[in-house]
């Protein structure tokens, strides 16, 4: 910006330093515009997962069996299957979890098989008439209450529905190792 006046005498009398400044501003302005052409859409593109469900499915009531499969006081382990979406894929009937389902005085109850303590799969002890966790020996009544072992709360009950001879439940996962039942 020093010898500009020798090379390009300002025909309109403009100060060469001022002209260079204008050119620099022009370069900056146009350059910023060029960057924005891609940069603006890029932000929307990359942040798309923040306000869209990219992985979804399995949050409603899912059928797990016919009504006559579940007798009073006899827990039956069922697999919960759901159709899932994972970005561009559609996956049909994948296992999202398991549940113990039984009738208790005619009322249908369902418990997640995930132990509230540390997440092992709770099993059944038919002879003792109890649910038992094989990992840390937490034991639960068929009503889901803790009867021994380290579990901080009873078995996590799941919402269950019976319509038209079919049993359906809403499968959810809960925070482990705490006394309160919190959906995660």
């Amino acid at each position: 910006m020093n010898d500009g006046d020798e090379k390009q005498p300002g025909r309109d009398g403009a100060d060469p330093a001022r002209r260079d400044l204008l050119k620099t501003l022009g370069i900056g302005g146009v350059g910023a515009g060029l960057a924005a052409v891609v940069g603006g859409p890029a932000v929307l593109f990359v942040t798309y997962p923040l306000d869209h469900d990219t992985v979804s499915g399995g949050d409603g009531f899912l059928p797990v069996g016919r009504s006559d499969q579940f007798a009073d006081g006899v827990p039956v382990k069922v697999d919960v299957l759901a159709d899932r979406r994972d970005a561009w894929n559609r996956v049909v009937q994948v296992k999202v979890g398991s549940a113990w389902v039984l009738r208790d005085g005619g009322v249908l109850r369902a418990y997640s098989t995930v132990c509230p303590h540390l997440g092992c799969a709770v099993d059944i002890d038919d002879e003792a008439h109890k649910f038992k966790c094989p990992c840390h020996r937490s034991a639960f009544t068929f009503a889901g209450a803790v009867e021994g072992g380290p579990s901080p709360r009873g078995m996590d009950s799941l919402e269950v529905q019976e319509t038209g001879g079919l049993v359906a439940l809403r499968y959810q996962r809960f925070r482990q190792g705490v006394a309160a039942k919190e959906v995660i």
Partner: peptide, 22 residues
């Protein structure tokens, strides 16, 4: 996955069609 992911980024993701078009 190639086609399905391209269709996804082009037709679902915000501004995907524009960036792929460019």
């Amino acid at each position: 996955d190639a086609w399905a992911s391209t269709a996804y980024l082009n037709d679902r993701v915000t501004m995907g069609w524009f960036l792929r078009g460019l």
